[in-house]
Protein backbone atom coordinates (compact mmCIF):
# COMPACT_ATOMS: atom_id res chain seq x y z
CA UNK A 1 0.00 0.00 0.00
CA UNK A 2 2.82 2.41 0.93
CA UNK A 3 4.53 1.75 -2.39
CA UNK A 4 1.30 2.44 -4.26
CA UNK A 5 0.82 5.78 -2.48
CA UNK A 6 4.40 6.81 -3.21
CA UNK A 7 4.03 6.05 -6.90
CA UNK A 8 0.67 7.80 -7.17
CA UNK A 9 2.04 10.91 -5.48
CA UNK A 10 4.42 11.39 -8.37
CA UNK A 11 1.53 12.00 -10.76
CA UNK A 12 -0.73 15.02 -10.99
CA UNK A 13 -4.49 14.92 -11.61
CA UNK A 14 -3.98 14.61 -15.37
CA UNK A 15 -2.00 11.43 -14.90
CA UNK A 16 1.28 12.99 -16.07
CA UNK A 17 4.51 12.80 -14.11
CA UNK A 18 5.47 15.88 -12.17
CA UNK A 19 9.10 15.10 -11.46
CA UNK A 20 11.92 12.56 -11.50
CA UNK A 21 11.78 11.54 -15.19
CA UNK A 22 14.90 9.45 -14.61
CA UNK A 23 12.64 7.00 -12.76
CA UNK A 24 10.63 6.17 -15.90
CA UNK A 25 12.65 3.09 -16.96
CA UNK A 26 12.39 1.70 -13.42
CA UNK A 27 8.65 2.36 -13.41
CA UNK A 28 8.28 0.47 -16.67
CA UNK A 29 10.34 -2.43 -15.40
CA UNK A 30 8.38 -2.41 -12.15
CA UNK A 31 5.06 -2.49 -13.97
CA UNK A 32 6.25 -5.30 -16.23
CA UNK A 33 7.41 -7.32 -13.22
CA UNK A 34 4.13 -6.73 -11.36
CA UNK A 35 2.20 -7.74 -14.49
CA UNK A 36 4.35 -10.83 -14.90
CA UNK A 37 3.91 -11.85 -11.25
CA UNK A 38 0.15 -11.26 -11.53
CA UNK A 39 -0.03 -13.47 -14.60
CA UNK A 40 2.08 -16.13 -12.97
CA UNK A 41 -0.23 -16.19 -9.96
CA UNK A 42 -3.34 -16.22 -12.11
CA UNK A 43 -1.96 -19.03 -14.28
CA UNK A 44 -1.09 -21.07 -11.18
CA UNK A 45 -4.62 -20.68 -9.80
CA UNK A 46 -5.98 -21.50 -13.27
CA UNK A 47 -3.89 -24.70 -13.34
CA UNK A 48 -4.96 -25.62 -9.80
CA UNK A 49 -8.64 -25.21 -10.69
CA UNK A 50 -8.21 -27.26 -13.85
CA UNK A 51 -6.44 -30.09 -12.03
CA UNK A 52 -9.08 -30.06 -9.29
CA UNK A 53 -11.81 -30.39 -11.90
CA UNK A 54 -10.08 -33.39 -13.48
CA UNK A 55 -11.58 -35.71 -10.91
CA UNK A 56 -15.14 -34.47 -11.32
CA UNK A 57 -17.82 -36.53 -13.05
CA UNK A 58 -18.38 -36.59 -16.81
CA UNK A 59 -14.75 -35.79 -17.60
CA UNK A 60 -13.64 -39.16 -18.96
CA UNK A 61 -15.02 -38.98 -22.50
CA UNK A 62 -13.88 -35.39 -22.96
CA UNK A 63 -10.37 -36.31 -21.80
CA UNK A 64 -10.25 -39.27 -24.20
CA UNK A 65 -11.26 -36.96 -27.06
CA UNK A 66 -8.45 -34.59 -26.16
CA UNK A 67 -5.93 -37.42 -25.89
CA UNK A 68 -6.92 -38.33 -29.44
CA UNK A 69 -6.48 -34.72 -30.60
CA UNK A 70 -3.28 -33.88 -28.70
CA UNK A 71 -1.73 -37.34 -28.67
CA UNK A 72 -2.90 -39.67 -31.42
CA UNK A 73 -3.06 -37.02 -34.13
CA UNK A 74 0.46 -35.81 -33.30
CA UNK A 75 2.09 -39.22 -33.72
CA UNK A 76 2.93 -38.85 -37.41
CA UNK A 77 4.71 -35.53 -37.09
CA UNK A 78 6.52 -36.62 -33.92
CA UNK A 79 7.74 -39.81 -35.64
CA UNK A 80 8.92 -37.89 -38.68
CA UNK A 81 10.84 -35.29 -36.69
CA UNK A 82 12.40 -37.80 -34.31
CA UNK A 83 13.38 -40.14 -37.15
CA UNK A 84 15.42 -37.45 -38.87
CA UNK A 85 16.79 -36.14 -35.58
CA UNK A 86 18.02 -39.65 -34.79
CA UNK A 87 19.49 -40.01 -38.26
CA UNK A 88 21.38 -36.71 -37.98
CA UNK A 89 22.61 -37.64 -34.52
CA UNK A 90 23.82 -41.01 -35.81
CA UNK A 91 25.59 -39.35 -38.71
CA UNK A 92 27.29 -36.65 -36.63
CA UNK A 93 28.20 -39.02 -33.81
CA UNK A 94 29.69 -41.57 -36.18
CA UNK A 95 31.95 -39.02 -37.90
CA UNK A 96 32.99 -37.40 -34.62
CA UNK A 97 33.64 -40.62 -32.71
CA UNK A 98 35.48 -42.31 -35.60
CA UNK A 99 38.23 -39.72 -35.16
CA UNK A 100 38.86 -41.14 -31.67
CA UNK A 101 38.22 -44.73 -32.64
CA UNK A 102 35.14 -44.72 -30.44
CA UNK A 103 32.45 -45.39 -33.06
CA UNK A 104 31.17 -48.17 -30.84
CA UNK A 105 29.65 -45.50 -28.60
CA UNK A 106 27.39 -44.12 -31.34
CA UNK A 107 24.39 -46.10 -30.12
CA UNK A 108 24.67 -44.89 -26.54
CA UNK A 109 25.27 -41.30 -27.62
CA UNK A 110 22.21 -41.29 -29.84
CA UNK A 111 20.02 -43.02 -27.26
CA UNK A 112 21.09 -40.88 -24.30
CA UNK A 113 20.78 -37.65 -26.26
CA UNK A 114 17.29 -38.57 -27.32
CA UNK A 115 16.02 -40.05 -24.06
CA UNK A 116 17.43 -37.35 -21.78
CA UNK A 117 17.15 -34.25 -23.92
CA UNK A 118 15.99 -34.21 -27.49
CA UNK A 119 13.08 -36.61 -27.16
CA UNK A 120 11.18 -34.65 -24.47
CA UNK A 121 12.17 -31.22 -25.81
CA UNK A 122 11.44 -31.84 -29.49
CA UNK A 123 8.20 -33.64 -28.68
CA UNK A 124 7.04 -30.75 -26.50
CA UNK A 125 7.95 -28.16 -29.14
CA UNK A 126 6.24 -30.11 -31.91
CA UNK A 127 3.07 -30.59 -29.84
CA UNK A 128 3.14 -26.90 -28.99
CA UNK A 129 3.29 -26.05 -32.68
CA UNK A 130 0.61 -28.51 -33.71
CA UNK A 131 -1.84 -28.79 -30.82
CA UNK A 132 -0.89 -25.94 -28.47
CA UNK A 133 -1.57 -23.26 -31.05
CA UNK A 134 -4.88 -24.93 -31.94
CA UNK A 135 -5.88 -25.09 -28.28
CA UNK A 136 -5.14 -21.39 -27.74
CA UNK A 137 -7.02 -20.40 -30.91
CA UNK A 138 -10.00 -22.65 -30.15
CA UNK A 139 -10.43 -21.38 -26.60
CA UNK A 140 -9.81 -17.79 -27.73
CA UNK A 141 -12.58 -18.03 -30.32
CA UNK A 142 -14.88 -19.64 -27.76
CA UNK A 143 -14.15 -16.69 -25.50
CA UNK A 144 -14.76 -13.89 -27.99
CA UNK A 145 -17.88 -15.55 -29.43
CA UNK A 146 -19.33 -15.73 -25.89
CA UNK A 147 -19.38 -19.53 -25.86
CA UNK A 148 -17.54 -19.51 -22.52
CA UNK A 149 -20.03 -16.98 -21.13
CA UNK A 150 -22.80 -19.25 -22.43
CA UNK A 151 -21.35 -22.15 -20.44
CA UNK A 152 -21.40 -20.01 -17.31
CA UNK A 153 -25.03 -19.07 -17.90
CA UNK A 154 -25.82 -22.77 -18.31
CA UNK A 155 -24.09 -23.34 -14.95
CA UNK A 156 -21.37 -25.45 -16.54
CA UNK A 157 -17.92 -24.64 -15.16
CA UNK A 158 -15.93 -23.59 -18.28
CA UNK A 159 -12.64 -24.66 -16.70
CA UNK A 160 -14.06 -28.12 -16.08
CA UNK A 161 -15.67 -28.39 -19.50
CA UNK A 162 -12.97 -26.84 -21.69
CA UNK A 163 -9.63 -26.54 -19.90
CA UNK A 164 -9.35 -29.50 -17.55
CA UNK A 165 -9.64 -32.25 -20.23
CA UNK A 166 -6.94 -30.55 -22.30
CA UNK A 167 -4.44 -30.30 -19.44
CA UNK A 168 -5.13 -33.88 -18.32
CA UNK A 169 -4.81 -35.13 -21.89
CA UNK A 170 -1.49 -33.30 -22.30
CA UNK A 171 -0.12 -34.83 -19.09
CA UNK A 172 -1.04 -38.29 -20.40
CA UNK A 173 -0.01 -37.73 -24.02
CA UNK A 174 3.37 -36.01 -23.64
CA UNK A 175 5.24 -38.94 -21.99
CA UNK A 176 3.70 -41.44 -24.42
CA UNK A 177 4.68 -39.36 -27.42
CA UNK A 178 8.13 -38.84 -25.91
CA UNK A 179 8.54 -42.61 -25.64
CA UNK A 180 7.57 -42.99 -29.30
CA UNK A 181 9.97 -40.19 -30.26
CA UNK A 182 12.80 -41.86 -28.32
CA UNK A 183 12.25 -45.22 -30.00
CA UNK A 184 11.89 -43.82 -33.51
CA UNK A 185 14.94 -41.56 -32.98
CA UNK A 186 17.08 -44.48 -31.86
CA UNK A 187 15.91 -46.35 -34.94
CA UNK A 188 16.85 -43.29 -37.04
CA UNK A 189 20.37 -43.40 -35.55
CA UNK A 190 20.50 -47.09 -36.45
CA UNK A 191 19.51 -46.30 -40.06
CA UNK A 192 22.26 -43.74 -40.59
CA UNK A 193 25.05 -45.31 -38.51
CA UNK A 194 24.44 -48.98 -39.34
CA UNK A 195 22.58 -49.10 -42.64
CA UNK A 196 24.29 -46.14 -44.34
CA UNK A 197 27.72 -45.88 -42.71
CA UNK A 198 28.33 -49.56 -42.05
CA UNK A 199 28.62 -49.64 -38.24
CA UNK A 200 28.07 -53.08 -36.81
CA UNK A 201 24.44 -53.49 -35.74
CA UNK A 202 25.36 -55.55 -32.67
CA UNK A 203 27.76 -52.84 -31.51
CA UNK A 204 25.05 -50.18 -31.92
CA UNK A 205 22.37 -52.03 -29.95
CA UNK A 206 24.82 -53.31 -27.30
CA UNK A 207 26.10 -49.80 -26.63
CA UNK A 208 22.52 -48.53 -26.38
CA UNK A 209 21.52 -51.28 -23.97
CA UNK A 210 24.55 -50.99 -21.71
CA UNK A 211 24.74 -47.23 -21.24
CA UNK A 212 21.05 -46.34 -21.00
CA UNK A 213 19.73 -46.97 -17.49
CA UNK A 214 16.17 -46.71 -16.15
CA UNK A 215 16.94 -43.42 -14.37
CA UNK A 216 17.66 -41.79 -17.74
CA UNK A 217 14.28 -42.89 -19.06
CA UNK A 218 12.51 -41.77 -15.87
CA UNK A 219 14.19 -38.36 -15.99
CA UNK A 220 13.11 -37.95 -19.61
CA UNK A 221 9.52 -38.73 -18.64
CA UNK A 222 9.65 -36.32 -15.69
CA UNK A 223 10.74 -33.61 -18.10
CA UNK A 224 7.97 -34.42 -20.53
CA UNK A 225 5.35 -34.21 -17.75
CA UNK A 226 6.74 -30.82 -16.67
CA UNK A 227 6.59 -29.64 -20.29
CA UNK A 228 3.02 -30.97 -20.62
CA UNK A 229 1.84 -28.98 -17.63
CA UNK A 230 3.59 -25.82 -18.83
CA UNK A 231 2.51 -26.04 -22.48
CA UNK A 232 -1.11 -26.98 -21.77
CA UNK A 233 -1.49 -24.36 -19.05
CA UNK A 234 0.07 -21.56 -21.10
CA UNK A 235 -1.94 -22.36 -24.25
CA UNK A 236 -5.25 -22.70 -22.39
CA UNK A 237 -4.57 -19.61 -20.28
CA UNK A 238 -3.69 -17.44 -23.29
CA UNK A 239 -6.85 -18.48 -25.11
CA UNK A 240 -9.09 -18.27 -22.05
CA UNK A 241 -8.07 -14.70 -21.30
CA UNK A 242 -7.71 -13.53 -24.92
CA UNK A 243 -10.50 -11.00 -24.33
CA UNK A 244 -8.51 -9.30 -21.58
CA UNK A 245 -5.51 -8.44 -23.75
CA UNK A 246 -4.76 -4.74 -23.75
CA UNK A 247 -2.93 -4.74 -27.08
CA UNK A 248 -5.81 -5.96 -29.25
CA UNK A 249 -9.44 -7.00 -29.47
CA UNK A 250 -11.57 -9.65 -31.16
CA UNK A 251 -10.03 -11.84 -33.85
CA UNK A 252 -6.72 -9.98 -33.59
CA UNK A 253 -6.59 -10.78 -29.87
CA UNK A 254 -7.08 -14.48 -30.66
CA UNK A 255 -4.25 -14.33 -33.22
CA UNK A 256 -1.90 -12.64 -30.77
CA UNK A 257 -2.95 -15.00 -27.97
CA UNK A 258 -2.06 -17.94 -30.20
CA UNK A 259 1.32 -16.45 -31.07
CA UNK A 260 2.01 -15.67 -27.40
CA UNK A 261 0.99 -19.19 -26.42
CA UNK A 262 3.50 -20.76 -28.83
CA UNK A 263 6.35 -18.36 -28.05
CA UNK A 264 5.92 -18.51 -24.26
CA UNK A 265 5.55 -22.30 -24.34
CA UNK A 266 8.75 -22.75 -26.37
CA UNK A 267 10.73 -20.43 -24.11
CA UNK A 268 9.38 -22.16 -21.00
CA UNK A 269 10.23 -25.58 -22.42
CA UNK A 270 13.86 -24.59 -22.85
CA UNK A 271 14.16 -22.73 -19.54
CA UNK A 272 12.45 -25.47 -17.56
CA UNK A 273 14.58 -28.07 -19.35
CA UNK A 274 17.66 -26.50 -17.82
CA UNK A 275 16.06 -26.17 -14.39
CA UNK A 276 14.75 -29.75 -14.32
CA UNK A 277 18.01 -31.15 -15.69
CA UNK A 278 20.03 -29.37 -13.00
CA UNK A 279 17.64 -30.61 -10.32
CA UNK A 280 17.77 -34.20 -11.55
CA UNK A 281 21.53 -34.33 -11.96
Amino acid sequence: MALEITIRNNYNNNGTREGWPWLDPFTMIGRAVIGWVNNLGAATIFLGQALWQTFRRKQFSKTIQQIYFIGARSITIIMLVSLFTGMVLGLQAYHALTQFGAEGAVGSLVALSLIMELGPVLTAIMITARAGSAIAAEIGIQRISEQIDALQTMHINPIRYIVSPKITAAIISFPLLTAIADLVGIFGGYLSAVMLLGLNAGVYWHSTQVYVVLADVTNGFIKSIVFAVLVATVCCYQGYFAHMRRDSHGAQAVGLATTSAVVISCVLILVSDYVVTSLLM
Binding site: E138, Q147, A150, T153
Partner: peptide, 19 residues
Protein backbone atom coordinates in the same frame (compact mmCIF):
# COMPACT_ATOMS: atom_id res chain seq x y z
CA UNK B 1 -25.77 -20.95 -7.42
CA UNK B 2 -29.16 -22.53 -6.74
CA UNK B 3 -30.88 -19.26 -7.66
CA UNK B 4 -28.82 -18.75 -10.80
CA UNK B 5 -29.41 -22.36 -11.85
CA UNK B 6 -33.02 -21.42 -12.52
CA UNK B 7 -32.05 -18.68 -14.96
CA UNK B 8 -31.40 -19.21 -18.66
CA UNK B 9 -29.83 -16.72 -21.02
CA UNK B 10 -30.23 -16.42 -24.75
CA UNK B 11 -27.33 -14.48 -26.23
CA UNK B 12 -27.65 -11.81 -28.88
CA UNK B 13 -25.10 -13.60 -31.09
CA UNK B 14 -26.53 -16.99 -30.06
CA UNK B 15 -23.21 -18.29 -28.60
CA UNK B 16 -23.81 -21.75 -30.03
CA UNK B 17 -20.89 -24.17 -29.95
CA UNK B 18 -19.78 -24.17 -33.56
CA UNK B 19 -17.98 -27.51 -33.30
Amino acid sequence: DASLARISYMFQQNALFDS
